[in-house]
């Protein structure tokens, strides 16, 4: 990168002459090289799926969850530095609880996303801190219906129909664009999500991975829950079979 060595990339509180903040861009690099995470906002709910890279065979299966719960009705996952993601999840939990304490009702997703964005953005202002090295996906069904937001290290937050972050994001986005997300059911979305994660995973280059999926919507009584085992296994199997068929073709 041309910027390296110019001195404008040493602090988040310094702009480069052409108006960029390199520290924030580097934070995005941490996300771009990490396992893929996708979200599908469909007709009656939202589905989250992540490609959890297994760094070691010694790790327990299903441990070190990548999809977390913020509140009964808010799901969270991130791509990038896992530790930063956990920190942000905890922050979001605190925000959600304090909103409940004050208003005595479940916060809307937008409320939490706005508060979390402000928090993340504050870490792009000072030389004494490092921007968060992760992009967050937040999924919810609130009084406005299903919602899916993405917050980047810059603190920018945008609502999405479908979102993909991490290493396989380009291919995943192409796949998501082919879907009629507004017409899918949650159940269909689970199959699509599993298929996309398996599809974008690069067997040749990557280590082993574990698929992780959660959903929220009509099927879960608007509570954020892991996708039930039987459905998960069926979706996982179909996704694997589809890949094999493609290879044979």
């Amino acid at each position: 990168m041309t910027s390296i060595g110019t001195g404008y990339d040493l602090s988040a509180s310094t702009y480069s002459p052409d108006g960029r903040i390199f520290q924030v861009e580097y934070a995005n690099k941490a996300v771009e090289n990490s396992g893929t995470a996708i979200g599908l906002r469909v007709k009656d709910g939202v589905v989250l799926a992540v490609e959890k890279i297994i760094h070691s065979k010694l790790l327990m299966p299903e441990s070190n969850k990548r999809i977390l719960t913020i509140d009964k009705h808010i799901g969270y996952t991130s791509s990038g530095l896992l530790a930063d993601g956990r920190q942000l999840a905890n922050r979001a939990r605190d925000e959600s609880q304090s909103s409940r304490d004050f208003y005595r009702e479940p916060p809307t997703l937008k409320t939490i996303v706005n508060r979390l964005s402000l928090f993340i953005q504050a870490y792009t202002l000072y030389s004494s801190v490092r921007p968060f090295g992760c992009t967050s996906l937040l999924a919810s069904v609130d009084k406005h219906g299903p919602g899916l937001y993405v917050i980047e290290p810059s603190g920018i937050s945008l609502g999405h129909h479908g979102a993909a972050v991490g290493k396989g994001r380009q291919l995943a986005k192409t796949e998501l664009e082919k879907l009629k997300l507004n017409e899918l059911s949650m159940r269909q979305a689970v199959y699509e999500a599993a298929r996309i994660i398996h599809l974008v995973h690069d067997d040749a280059k990557e280590k082993d991975f574990e698929l992780e999926m959660s959903w929220i919507g009509a099927e879960t009584n608007n509570i954020h829950l892991p996708v039930p085992k039987d459905l998960f296994e069926d979706a996982d199997k179909q996704a694997r079979d589809a890949l094999l068929e493609d290879m044979e073709d």
Binding site: Q97, R100, P226
Partner: peptide
């Protein structure tokens, strides 16, 4: 009620 609801939510998020 609110205190207990908060407790249950906290417990739920631990998963």
């Amino acid at each position: 009620q609110h205190t207990l609801d908060s407790l249950i939510i906290e417990e739920f998020t631990y998963d």
